[in-house]
Simulated assay, not measured.
Amino acid sequence: MTTKVEKSVEVDVPVRTAYNQWTQFEEFPDFMGGVESVTQRDDRTLHWVAAIAGVRREWDAEILEQVPDEKVAWAATSGATNAGAVHFIPNGPGQTLVTLHLEFEPEGLVEKAGDALNVVERQTEADLANFKSFIESRGAETGAWRGEVRAGSALGTPGVADTVPPGQDVVDVLTADHREVAGLIGEIWTTQDPGERRDLADTAIAELVRHAVAEEMYVYPAMRKHLADGDEAVEHDVEEHQQLEELMKQFEGVEGSDPRFNELLRKLDTVLADHISDEETKHFPQLRAALPESELVELAGKVESAKKLAPTRPHPAAPNHELFHKLVGPGVGMVDRLRDKLTGRTTS
């Protein structure tokens, strides 16, 4: 079973100082318990040697995203199954909130026993406390790397030209998403095999989560700005997103043969149908009328790019707004995709 840990610490140094110090990966053993060494092989690749719950492990990790003064996100590529992200947020004059997200898969009896005892959670708290002491006692970083690694850059993240078919704008893209999810739900109703029903449900959930996140990142800010009743329309749509996320969260672990499966599917189908009707009959036509074609096409590209990095699982406790998705969403999405790979969950 995958384990998630999220801890924060406030450090009394500016964001730039805290971030700069974190980029000195080879100095992690100075404040991270159990880490014997970190070797930086190039701008994106690290080799770790550490003791996890008393077991010595080695693994390679790739930096997936590194944005100066904002975040560093990574995932293991061999030797272990873990991923994480650290975020740096200004928290007053000369202060920074450092938040560390970790997700990993304990391996072997010793690690699983250690995980059961919350060893990793306690170690994470201790590591952040040590980082605070380390950087505050110095008052300055030991070094810095101010380059950037953008999410998906090494894989050639497609831009507007090669993600959106010619002649399509953001309304076309979002409407196609609606049709895809509605079609998946229709397949679930007509499929009898419990395993197939569960796989179809997982695919629908992943598509709907990605769609909702992309809307909240780029479409809803445009609606607020350009529609006469933009704030009211967005609040209504966000409330429906929240209802959908809560239903999807309940739906996640229910087997296709469970009587609750049909009950939750029916509720999800009802809320989704109402949401689609509101957007397609009211909000989308208003948005298309308010924005020039070039901006609608540009929004389509942003939506498609956002969906590639967005979470694939519902997180109803997370804020449904643009800033959260841009700061934290890619790290959450990376962890979700890692979990999907580990569990064999169907997302497409």
Results as ranks from 00 to 15, higher is better:
257 S>L: 00
290 A>I: 06
212 A>Q: 12
292 P>W: 11
180 E>Q: 10
233 A>H: 12
180 E>N: 05
175 T>L: 09
188 I>Q: 09
170 V>Y: 03
289 A>T: 13
255 E>W: 00
249 K>G: 03
210 R>N: 01
240 E>Q: 12
232 E>Y: 03
226 H>C: 00
290 A>K: 05
177 D>I: 05
241 H>W: 07
218 Y>K: 11
246 E>H: 11
261 F>K: 04
167 G>Y: 14
172 D>R: 13
224 R>F: 04
229 D>I: 01
284 F>M: 09
262 N>A: 15
233 A>K: 13
287 L>K: 04
266 R>W: 04
218 Y>E: 11
171 V>E: 01
217 M>R: 15
295 E>I: 01
235 E>A: 11
288 R>G: 09
190 T>K: 14
170 V>K: 03
212 A>F: 01
193 D>A: 11
203 T>L: 00
277 S>Q: 14
187 E>Y: 00
179 R>A: 10
179 R>Q: 13
292 P>K: 09
237 D>P: 02
267 K>C: 02
275 H>K: 03
170 V>L: 08
219 V>Y: 03
286 Q>I: 01
183 G>Q: 01
175 T>E: 15
238 V>R: 12
224 R>A: 06
206 A>T: 05
194 P>G: 02
248 M>E: 10
244 L>Y: 02
166 P>K: 05
206 A>M: 04
241 H>Q: 08
168 Q>H: 12
220 Y>V: 06
197 R>S: 07
223 M>P: 00
220 Y>Q: 08
243 Q>D: 11
208 L>M: 13
251 F>H: 10
197 R>A: 08
274 D>P: 01
296 L>V: 07
170 V>S: 12
252 E>A: 07
296 L>F: 02
227 L>N: 09
283 H>S: 11
282 K>H: 14
256 G>L: 08
221 P>M: 07
174 L>Q: 10
278 D>G: 00
244 L>W: 04
255 E>T: 06
198 R>D: 15
182 A>I: 06
167 G>V: 12
266 R>Y: 05
256 G>D: 12
254 V>M: 06
166 P>S: 10
269 D>S: 13
247 L>K: 09
228 A>E: 15
272 L>M: 09
184 L>E: 10
210 R>T: 07
200 L>R: 09
223 M>K: 12
289 A>G: 14
231 D>Q: 14
